[in-house]
Computed example of a mutant assay.
Amino acid sequence: MSDLYGIYLHIPYCRAKCRYCDFYSAPGARGVPQPYTDALLRELAKNDRRPDTLYFGGGTPALLTPQQVESLITAANPLPEAEITLEANPDVVTPERLTGFRAAGVTRISFGVQSASNAQLRRLGRTHTAEGASQALTWARKAGFAEICGDIMLALPEYSNAEFDATLALLQQGGCTHISAYLLKVEPGTAFYRNPPVGLPDGDAAADFYLYAVDQLEKAGYKQYEISNFCRPGHEGRHNLLYWDCCDYQGYGPAAHSCVGGVRKYWPNDVQAFIDGTAAEEVEGNCTAEDFLLMQLRLRKGLDLAEYARWGGRFTTAQKQFICQCVAHGYAEFDEKTLHLTPAGMVVQNSILTELM
């Protein structure tokens, strides 16, 4: 267990809904309404614990003004040297806005680049271009950001290794210290679910794209530390590590989740109720050994069995036999003290977890 503590602020507003997105969002062509920021400030005033990390997630948090961001950071009262991350779409930022975010206290900027193919970006419903993403990365460096993150989506319609290579090159040249690379998943309720795009790779092809990405990212100096996350040495995302290491974190905003003191909670998906103060967090349940197992096997460092035992977990003889089979097939490594999945194992992680949970 750890004393580390993070705060997550959900900014649900977006200029447009991407065709693959199933996150809770609200129209935000005019930016983030001040009443919503005021509602976050109201809830933050109830918090008496200084966070080690603060994360502005969305939606599109870069629709906040630097002044709004500064007020929220001040209210959160993060510890010195805290990691403060803000997600951004490349077409939302300007040099002045990025300079303002940096001056407000943001230490880490994360861009949803996704692809270096403009045709692909249009297909996804993204509102930026590859050229615009490159420009935004340049502006972020000039604004003084030493921690710059970029997202890559894999196994998109009509995908190729060449598209991945071009996207990685764009992020490398943009100075990214951290890259998230994840497979497209068509979720219920999305435009892609209602009208599936042509040319989607099958499961085997998607797995090949993932393994190719892991290999190329490693060669480029981005070490994998989580199933979808890669970084230059020492540039891991500290906030998300709180989730995966089952530390305390408090979320604010509709659809935001929390886990404090071993109890999981969430806010209802209702912007107006949150603004009005009529919404309240609802209890989801207690954290269990299975939750710890699920989170730790996302990490390349794997599951420490002694720590798992402190959560009340242990493997049966049958489960250990299954683990040995995973090792024999190259899906895992196990030394009786630590179990961790290989990249090939992470491709079939859900199947492995089904046997272990």
Rank of each mutant, 00 (worst) to 15 (best):
K320E: 03
C326F: 00
Q272W: 06
E282W: 04
C246N: 13
T65Q: 00
E282I: 15
A166Y: 03
Q325Y: 09
A344V: 09
R310A: 11
G285W: 03
G277R: 12
L211M: 03
P197A: 12
S71Q: 04
K142S: 15
G112N: 06
A104N: 03
N161T: 13
R264N: 04
E163Y: 05
R122Q: 14
T107V: 12
E70D: 07
A143L: 10
G57T: 03
A279M: 05
D202R: 07
P78Q: 13
V263T: 14
T177H: 09
Y55W: 02
E226C: 05
H257L: 06
G237Q: 08
G285H: 02
D291N: 14
D52R: 05
P35C: 13
G57I: 04
I323K: 06
I73N: 03
M1D: 12
R298C: 01
T53G: 12
Q67V: 00
Y222S: 08
V113M: 11
L356F: 08
P233C: 06
L98V: 07
P254I: 07
P196D: 11
R314W: 06
Y212V: 03
H239C: 09
R50C: 05
A205P: 01
D151C: 11
D165I: 07
E96R: 10
R19Q: 15
A76D: 04
V214H: 01
A279P: 08
N350P: 00
H235G: 06
L242D: 08
Y243V: 06
N195M: 03
I148K: 07
Q349K: 02
I227P: 05
E355R: 15
Y24C: 09
H128E: 11
S25F: 07
T167G: 09
C326Q: 00
R50P: 00
G262D: 06
I148E: 14
